[in-house]
Design a protein around this nucleic acid. Structure first.
Lengths: 344, 344
DNA sequence: GTTAGCACTCACTAAACCCGAGTGCTAACT
DNA sequence: AGTTAGCACTCGGGTTTAGTGAGTGCTAAC
């Protein structure tokens, strides 16, 4: 048995209707609401085939059909339509980006909020990890005898700081000296391009008067930056998960809420997305077990050439894929665009 | 009609039992489980009085009684007992504090997590606002022509940065010059003690060669610091709110979840707490409307003399007040203690 | 003032029941 | 061969009914 034009149409009708209403959809509904020119009996036969193909399932005998993960997959691969972004939304987005353009962190945070509002899904957004963005300025500031703050200004105009324990006492003058040398060496590059360790010898050379301290401080900085290369992660619209499960399932809701407090896990969820496209993982397609009950749709935006941030949503497998994908595409496209100049 | 010894005992029994079981408690239960030496009929009469006094209520005829807000109030005011912190918990707390002592931010975050775990309530914790902590070092770093980053190292060894738009172009040398002067003036003080505006004239004097730029930059810094004087706020154990309402009430749960994404609101919740004590607001006692369905228990910890951070929990009015108060007291006492040296 | 006894209330549960949406199958029709 | 009408059957969900038991309030006796 094979797919044919009519089967596809019926599948699409089932999915559209189910996404809209949330009720299992029966043959009669389709023959009435969607104009296929055949009777419900014929549709019934086709539906029986679709079920055999694993594209739809029956929650129980004598109920209508609902799409399976595989059915949704076929839908998003072939039948999904981009949907229209209303002018009002468009305006909100552009304003948002314009206003916040100087603060990438808050821009991303606000974007997450917006996407959550538009999609009714829990939205995760993260800034690029520090190692991927170009560094405009780096500054060491003494904190106490055995620690310095390393302040990094990126070309996205966000400022990060790291408190770094140093192996040896370090004073203000030395901070300044090291700051100067560091800036000369790495200004305009990303940390993933330049390994601080490579600089070690040349810097020890230049800072002879401080002995081997400079080198070991550098080492400490390198370690900390590598360890704490974690981006900012925002989650917004968490309340939407209350509608995902048939409310019976408090345990699943709880599990999600707990995960939302684990930043490393959130970044794992978004890691799945590939650059320049919207990635959709439906139900069982998800690698991470707790996500197997949901769909994850994610994409990325770029800042300049290298820096890549992610944004994505978690929602029920029964979600309005058309809309979600449209929103994400639109948002990521615009963030990337508006930030283009910053990263050249 | 008046309270007497026996009525108090009965009230206490009702509250203890209800907190433990969650079921409305009847006269028979009390006469069996708690040894008051009188029959259920007598207790019944007393309960009728207690109800008249507004201390307990009946969810419906022919159900047992449950405490009212007023009843809980009488309980926490007079009958609550500190409860024992188990040695294991004690160890966890001390280890936590020892490990994280250098990073006040993460210390507070981890503490919130711990408290959430121990109390099964949603826990909010916040660091002191920057204006309250002593400043160890302040550093201006150029970001682009029209903005500088102001990096503030506090005597709690946490580092904050603020990106500040400047009215006029500002270069590296000027940053350094201003940095030096600022440090001389405000090192060791808190921003609430010293108004940057006071410094304006003396600084313009010292930096004559830059014209009035220094003054206006200072102004900009002052503005930003005042505006963004917001502390870090952490919320942990949000999932616990799923157990607060009788699951029927999805709306209330949703409202809470939404609020948890509004940092200013969270800080408002904790603002209610008075220094050096554990503050308890039961149900209707809360000023903030959405909190009127819950109890908020909060306290503060100190860093040095001035800096005050808050930590508190939101839970159902039916919560184990004994335990919650004990945990909060213990935790705040220990944070304050361990951080004492830092803030002298 | 305390207690035993008793009638009454009412939420909650389970069982019985009905309804309707939906299916699958068969037989007839094109 | 594909399509359709007709029909028996299934089963989830809602409604009704009855029963149960925890708990109260009142009264009368101790």
């Amino acid at each position: 048995m094979d797919m044919n034009e009519r089967k596809l149409k019926i599948l699409e009708a089932i999915i559209r209707d189910y996404i809209e209403t949330g009720d299992p959809v029966g043959s009669r509904t389709i023959s009435k609401k969607y104009d296929l020119g055949v009777s419900s009996a014929t549709i019934r036969n086709e539906m029986s085939d679709l079920e055999e193909l694993g594209l739809i399932v029956q929650p129980h005998t004598s109920a209508g059909r609902i799409p399976s993960d595989k059915g949704y997959r076929m839908y998003v691969d072939g039948m999904m339509k981009r949907c229209h972004i209303t002018p009002e939304v468009e305006e909100v987005i552009t304003n948002l980006i314009k206003e916040k353009i100087n603060r990438v962190d808050t821009l991303v945070e606000e974007t997450a909020k917006l996407v959550a509002m538009l999609t009714n899904c829990a939205t995760i957004a993260m800034t690029p990890p520090i190692s991927q963005v170009r560094i405009k300025h780096i500054q060491l500031v003494p904190v106490d005898d055995y620690s310095v703050a390393c302040v990094v200004v990126t070309d996205t105009n966000s400022v990060k700081n790291y408190v770094i324990p140093t192996p040896k006492a370090i004073d203000f003058n030395m901070c300044m000296a090291l700051t100067n040398i560091l800036n000369e060496s790495i200004k305009g590059s990303t940390l993933s391009q330049i390994s601080l360790n490579q600089l070690k010898y040349s810097i020890e050379e230049k800072m002879k008067e401080y002995g081997d301290i400079a080198g070991s401080v550098l080492q400490a900085i390198d370690n900390t930056l590598k360890q704490e290369d974690s981006p900012e992660i925002y989650i917004r619209g968490a309340n939407n998960i209350l509608d995902f499960n048939g409310m019976d399932d408090k345990d699943k809701t709880r599990t999600l809420l707990k995960l939302f407090e684990e930043k490393p896990y959130l970044s794992k969820i978004l890691d799945q997305s590939k650059p320049n496209t919207v990635t959709i993982r439906i139900g069982e397609e998800n690698v991470l077990t707790p996500m197997k009950d949901y769909s994850v749709v994610s994409t990325s935006y770029r800042i300049g050439e290298h820096a890549i941030g992610n944004i994505g949503i978690i929602g029920p497998t029964r979600m309005d894929y058309d809309q979600v994908v449209s929103v994400l595409e639109y948002v990521s496209y615009h963030i990337t665009n508006m930030l283009k100049e910053l990263g050249h």
